[in-house]
Design a protein around this nucleic acid. Structure first.
Lengths: 206, 206, 206, 206
DNA sequence: TATGAATGAGCGTTCATTCAT
DNA sequence: CATGAATGAACGCTCATTCAT
């Protein structure tokens, strides 16, 4: 059964490439993520990358998956801190911002597929999104079951909405952080917290 | 006074180029908006474009200004339909989505300067943003004065938050519209409306 | 005889254009001397320039003529200061450096025709060179007649040589001035003076 | 140790490109040395050149280094022909002209960095210049030690001056060779020799 | 005579992808 | 499996020159 071993090796190589791509992404941003930069970082030949990924887009797709997995892990941590579903949600929303702070340039991945790719998101990528959604939805479900949020709230729908709003907030901070800080006279963390409070209070049952 | 006429002609040409740039933007998206594509669309030589715009960025800046002006106009219309500030806000949020539906790819312009440009947004561009913010803020101000929204709401801050959330929503619809439609079994308009309701109810005074 | 008047007007325009070209040359150097820059400086349309000069090269040729005329004037001044032909020559050589100091970027014109132009120097341009040569030669002639310089010196030949060496010196100073200053620990003026002394002593009769 | 072989191959390619650049330089001059012309000459794609040189300036720098090395080699040969330092200097000056005759358009490289480049000469390039200067200076030093040249002569300074004058002479011949030939009724070689004699006699001790 | 808009070839440079080894 | 040299199209931009008005 050499096959399995080969598969494993192949997978290791893939991970090495993705690790390198991540380094480049974190250091220079998505628009400087060129194949040659990744290859150099991985100490591989450019051509070698094409043995593991058929297109540059594939690498970015996998990178996106990774970033979602990281986010998912943060969300899991966020949930573990408390039993209260509503507080869990709050922690999740805050974790989203912490994620941005930790991996500044990752948020660029959010829009990549629509903006730059010829095709739609590959299924594997969609799945990771769904995993995140499922987690958030489960928290919301519990909150709903416990009567903590308004009954009128459609969990699936609100999950999308929350996700969308969070992305918008992160981009806003990234785009206009300094302006916001100076105009509102508060750090972006507080600005984001206002948003979080708005969301939590907006769904809380009376 | 030939000068005035010349100015007008020159301006017309500028508009022609921007029209062409818009066509390219709407058809292919911002990342395919190359000078050569715009020139071809305008049936002009590439060099000619540089008689009217000193850099590609200038074209994009003007395009952004145009789009913000369109949006501002839609917001004004939205306000005129009712006297109730809260309903005005609702209309504004809805107008944002109508804008997206009408000019699909324009939302890509939102992030351009942060992501691609070397410099910050030019002043003219900032001004158009400020005009929009000011309009929204004025509606919120009135709502607050009339006791329609919670006193705890900081108008300037909430204007940013609303703007951020709206952008996030539009991007979400653009990115995952079909998926949302099929999963929630409702058109994206309704999905967006849920978001609008959430915002309005979230700030409404009890 | 309107013709003469027209000619005069035409000539005035030509001078205006050349004045402007000179301004651009002095300000930005030869490689930034574009037709559009000259036209802007002259407050004329670009096309207008082509009514007076058939090619950009023509403008540069005329500019070169002007610079030689300026140099010739400086040489005349240099001669007037003394009766001694050898001192006159010294003054001429020094005047060459003063010319460089005054019109820094003009020295770029020296090589233009060989380096950039398709054709050889036009006759008019050659004539101005000859005028300078003639002046220097006349000084050398008198020096020779008075027995101040070695009889073996061929005046025409040495005129060329002196001219060549001077150009080389100016270019060297322009190219490596700071390096020379620091390495020799003396200002470039003194460096140049050493050269002048070398030339004068080299031809002086014993 | 495949690496060494690869390095060698890479170096060969570099040399091929430089050879092609040289062909273009010799045929059309420095101002027509475009990347596309060099690529065409080398029968390579334009992009390929950038695998070996990061900027056009790099190619020109290497070309300059090559030309200086050639010149240095000629100078070394010139020195070996005799033991007399003054005759060595004479040979060096003559070698400078032979170099020009052999590589007509190379002298254009002398001014490149000052006139066209954004940056200063790269260190490697400066070193080659220094090597040449050092050689000439060593010859002059020996001449001075042996009392063959005037004690008043500052070796470092005169090295610069000689270098400058030589450049001026070559440019003069290149610019006005035919005119000189016809006017003086002698070949440019003889014209140049007169210059050389002038320099040698000018520094010779009495 | 004068305009200045328009041209279009040219520039240096980047980069995803291919393919002979 | 791995290489990395090579490609070639595309990019944004400049500018001398032309020409309809």
């Amino acid at each position: 059964m050499l096959k399995a071993r080969d598969q494993k090796e192949k997978n290791l190589r893939k991970q090495l490439i993705l690790d390198s791509a991540e380094v480049v992404l974190e250091r220079r941003g998505l628009h400087k993520l060129s194949i040659s930069a990744v290859a150099k970082e991985a100490k591989l030949a450019q051509g070698t990358l094409y043995l593991y990924f058929s297109k540059k887009e594939d690498i970015i797709a996998q990178l996106t998956i990774r970033s979602r997995q990281k986010l998912l892990a943060l969300f899991h941590q966020a949930i573990e801190k408390t039993e209260d579903p509503l507080e869990q949600l709050r922690n999740i929303l805050q974790a989203n911002f912490k994620f941005y702070n930790k991996y500044r340039l990752y948020y660029e991945l959010v829009n990549f597929y629509k903006v730059n790719a010829e095709e739609n998101e590959p299924p594997e990528l969609k799945q990771t999104s769904r995993n995140i959604s499922a987690l958030v939805a489960s928290v919301l479900d519990r909150a709903k079951t416990q009567g903590l949020i308004r009954p009128s709230i459609n969990v699936a729908e609100f999950t999308y909405i929350a996700w969308a709003m969070c992305n918008g907030m992160v981009q806003m901070v990234d785009l206009s952080g300094p302006q916001i800080t100076s105009e509102l006279n508060k750090p972006t963390e507080d600005f984001y917290t206002t948003y979080v409070n708005f969301v939590i209070e907006g769904i809380r049952a009376h």
